[in-house]
Each structure stands twice: as structure tokens, then as C-alpha cells.
Design a protein around this nucleic acid. Sequence first.
RNA 1: GGAGUCUACCAGGCAGUCGCUGCUUCAGUAUGAUUCGAAGUAGAGGAAAGUCCGGGCUCCACAGGGCAAGGUGCCAGGUAACGCCUGGGAGGUGCAAGCCUACGGCUAGUGCAGCAGAGAGAAGACCGCCUAAAUAUAACUCGUGAGUUAUGUCGGUAAGGGUGAAAGGGUGCGGUAAGAGCGCACCGCGCGCGUGGUAACAUGUUGUGGCAUGGUAAACCCCACUGGAGCAAGACCAAAUAGGAACCCGUUGGCGUUGCCCGCGUUGGGUUCGGGUAGGUUGCUGGAGGCUUGUGGUGACGCAGGUCCAAGAUGAAUGGCUGCCCAAGACAGAACCCGGCUUAUCGGUGGGCUCCCAUG
Length: 124
Amino acid sequence: MGSYPFTQQKRLLKAQEYRQVFDQASYKISDRHMLILATANQFGQSRLGVIIAKKNIRLAVNRNRIKRLLRESFRHQTQFPISVDLVVMARSGINDLSNTELRQLLECQWQRLIKRLLKISYQT
RNA sequence: GGAGUCUACCAGGCAGUCGCUGCUUCAGUAUGAUUCGAAGUAGAGGAAAGUCCGGGCUCCACAGGGCAAGGUGCCAGGUAACGCCUGGGAGGUGCAAGCCUACGGCUAGUGCAGCAGAGAGAAGACCGCCUAAAUAUAACUCGUGAGUUAUGUCGGUAAGGGUGAAAGGGUGCGGUAAGAGCGCACCGCGCGCGUGGUAACAUGUUGUGGCAUGGUAAACCCCACUGGAGCAAGACCAAAUAGGAACCCGUUGGCGUUGCCCGCGUUGGGUUCGGGUAGGUUGCUGGAGGCUUGUGGUGACGCAGGUCCAAGAUGAAUGGCUGCCCAAGACAGAACCCGGCUUAUCGGUGGGCUCCCAUG
């Protein structure tokens, strides 16, 4: 049975690491709830960073909820063909989604990303 | 039983499974640090919120005094302290239990007050009231300036009407031309004194004043009290980089000093010190701590004993999924820590008190 741990190595921790993703973002997936930036890394495992602006989601309780759901969904996601650094930026509409809706939406976004990644890796 | 009021408390639960953070123990590589693995254990709130006050803690400033700005403001007590709490007083409100109060000083000064109204602060004559004094006209009487009556002017007047939120104490009697604290009695008010109370204040007065003292100080102002900034405080370690210091090596190197030599200036390499950016460590949770027993106090709270240890993250943990149950889950997430205040909030539980109805 898979345990899917989520340790410090699987997160973006420093401002510099976030900046790298912003500067070299080779893949972008966007809709009205969120924006996902991604870039390939050399660590052998994918890493996640989350940005939720106070302006978009006012209450700390809701910011925590979205952050946790994002992490949980990312933790169960093991199908990336190459290791990538991700930054997920929340937009204000995301707070209207229920837990179930958000989970389904994220599942869908991961599939879109995987397709893009596969396409690139075939070309190279 | 119904209605109300005050106060204390709870904040969905259980099971399975996959994770996250701290701590403890065990095991492995290779001593240790560290990392990984396993097990155990702990892991948001009554408001964690707003950041509105007060402290602890840290740094800065500090001989003493003054000025400015802001805040607080009945009295006493509690407290580390407060703008908080408790008790008391005063005023308002409710049948009551209760609740509310920005509650120092406009008999220090300055200012302000729409509309209405004659007049809004050493006030005022619109209607009304008066003809005593002054004066004008007319009539009459006595007889040449006096009297009486009538009408008016000036004048007197704050009783009555009218305006207004408010008209410069109220009622009665005297008084007067009419009136008026003008005088008196009672009531009210101020001052003084007595009594009770630590005091705010209450109460009495067979003392006194003759009404002088309208409102507004979240208007200026007067009186009393009041250092500043914050954990991104502060402390430590420390790649990089700028410009430095000391020592050593070389001085047989380069450049300049007219060509050469000496000398001088400048330049080099290494080590250490210092510096402090990125980053890291610490501050960081055992405390004005919780629970409980006794005791002092009307109470807030104090004192003494016993017992317990209850989050500590740092891109930031405390969650996801599945199933079951019910009264169907609100507001909402620690970020140095406490004491308050304010605001948000689905429901529910216990206790005290008041009023109404019924029964005994």
C-alpha cells in the first residue's frame, strides 16, 4: 500500500526557489480559479509551492483550507514523467468551491500538466 | 408552567485509513553531529479576530526643569498595571430582578446658540396693565395759577397673553397707580456650621444671603496623572561582496623617479583579525500558569498547602478520504507572552433572582 509521504524535500522553501520558477516557467496552466507555473528541476522529485494572496482570500481559515487541499492533492499525484517545480497561485474565485469540487478540479489540472510534460519529453 | 433578567459552561461525536509538526525511546551505517526508519505521545480559540488600552520582556533615551500634542476624569478598594474589575454614591429607566451614564470645573476667563419671538444674558415693552410723578389738549370749579375729570404722549411695569427646548426661583399674603424678593411666611437654591461616613455624598439647621448661580467644557480652556520604540525587539554563527587593519613571505618581480646603481613611492601572495549580505541558530514557551483544599474579605482579590505540565510552526504543522450516529455543526486559525475591552457567533446545558398564572 502506497503511503505518499510529503516531506520538506517536496516543498519550495526559499524566496530564491520561487523566483526561479517564475523566471523560467516553461509550462503554464490557467483558469479562473488558479494559475499553475511549472519548470523542470534536477532533484529527482517534484516540489510544490503555494501562493495565496490575502487580497484574494480574506480569511485565514479559508487560506489554510485551500493550502491543505492543494498539498493533499499534490501528495497523491505520482504520475509526473519528469521532476518539476510547481507554483500554484490561487485566484479569488477558488474560495467558492467546496472541498470535493476543488479536488476534482485539481485532478483535472494535473492531467493537463502531465499531457504537456509528456509532449515535451517525446520531442527531446 | 409562562415571561424576563443575571451568571457559569460546551463548541458535533465515534471508527478505519493516508499524511504533517514537536518531543521521548529504540534500531542501523562508522565514534559524534546529521539524516533516514520504527514505536509511543502531544498538537488552535472563546473569541486565536479587531489591534482599542494596560503590563512583562528587549533596545534606546534619562542632572533638573519647561513647552507642545494626545488620552483619562464621582469616591474608595483590588491589581504588575489599566481607559479593566469590585463595592459605594449621584442621576436616569423598568411593576420588579436588573440595566444605562464622557458622572471634575461654566457663582476663573473667552466663545457659541438655527427658526420663532419685543427680548436669549448686567435682557426685554408686541398685546396687555397703570395715571402716582412729568407734560400736552379739552371740559368744569375757584379766580390768574392751582384743583378735579377725560383723552393722549413720554414714562412706569415682568402679574396675565403670545413666541420658544429654555424668558433671569415657585405658591400665598402684604404692598402698590399698576407691579416687582419691594417686604413677610412656607418650599427650593447657595454659603456657613453641626451630625453620620475613610471619601464621594447624605442629612439637620429657631445661622445667613435675597435669588445673586440659564445651557454648552466628546467648544477653547483650568486642575490632576502620563519617557520613546517594538520579537521584522534584541543576541549569536556566518558563504559572498566593498573598502580596511596586523603579521609573515618575496623584495632576484612590474611601474614611476632622465641612462645605471643605491634609496624612496606604488603594486603582489599567504595567514589572522574585523566586517556583516544570503542563509542559519536563539529569543520560544514553566507562566502575574491551570486544578483543588483551607483561610481572610460584602466583593474584586489576597495568603498558605497539595497536585499537574497543557501547541510552539518559520513559505509557516494541527489535515484529506470513507463509513456510522445525532439535536445536523455558527463565528472563525496560535506567530513573544499575559491582563482587559470591543466586535462576530448555529445550537445547547447548569445555577441565582424577579414578575404573572395554576394547584396544595
